[in-house]
Amino acid sequence: MAACALCDASAGSETAPPTWSCSVENGSHQYVCEKCARTHIRAIESRLDSAWW
């Protein structure tokens, strides 16, 4: 089941909805829900490592 890497919100299915953000960090896919993506959009667009968020 896909879950948000920041707030652990569940996607409700094996795949994340198209409104969620996906990144590859250390070789694994990490999904960020729409709410968290909006909160951290500047860091995401700047491609800052999630440790900086």
Rank of each mutant, 00 (worst) to 15 (best):
A3E: 04
A3I: 06
A3F: 04
C4D: 05
A5E: 03
A5P: 00
C7H: 00
C7A: 00
D8K: 07
D8Y: 02
A11Y: 09
A11D: 10
S13G: 09
T15E: 03
T15M: 03
T15R: 06
T15P: 00
A16Q: 05
A16N: 00
P17R: 11
P17Y: 06
T19E: 07
T19M: 00
W20C: 02
W20R: 02
W20V: 01
C22K: 10
C22A: 07
S23A: 10
V24F: 12
E25C: 10
N26P: 02
N26K: 09
G27I: 08
G27C: 10
S28Q: 06
H29M: 02
H29D: 06
Q30G: 04
Q30W: 15
Y31K: 03
Y31T: 03
Y31R: 01
C33I: 09
E34Q: 11
C36S: 01
R38I: 14
H40S: 12
H40G: 09
H40Q: 14
H40T: 14
H40W: 13
I41P: 01
I41D: 13
R42Q: 12
A43P: 10
A43Y: 13
A43D: 15
E45A: 11
S46Q: 12
R47N: 06
L48K: 14
L48E: 15
D49C: 07
S50I: 11
S50H: 00
W52R: 15
W52N: 11
W52M: 14
W53C: 10
W53N: 12
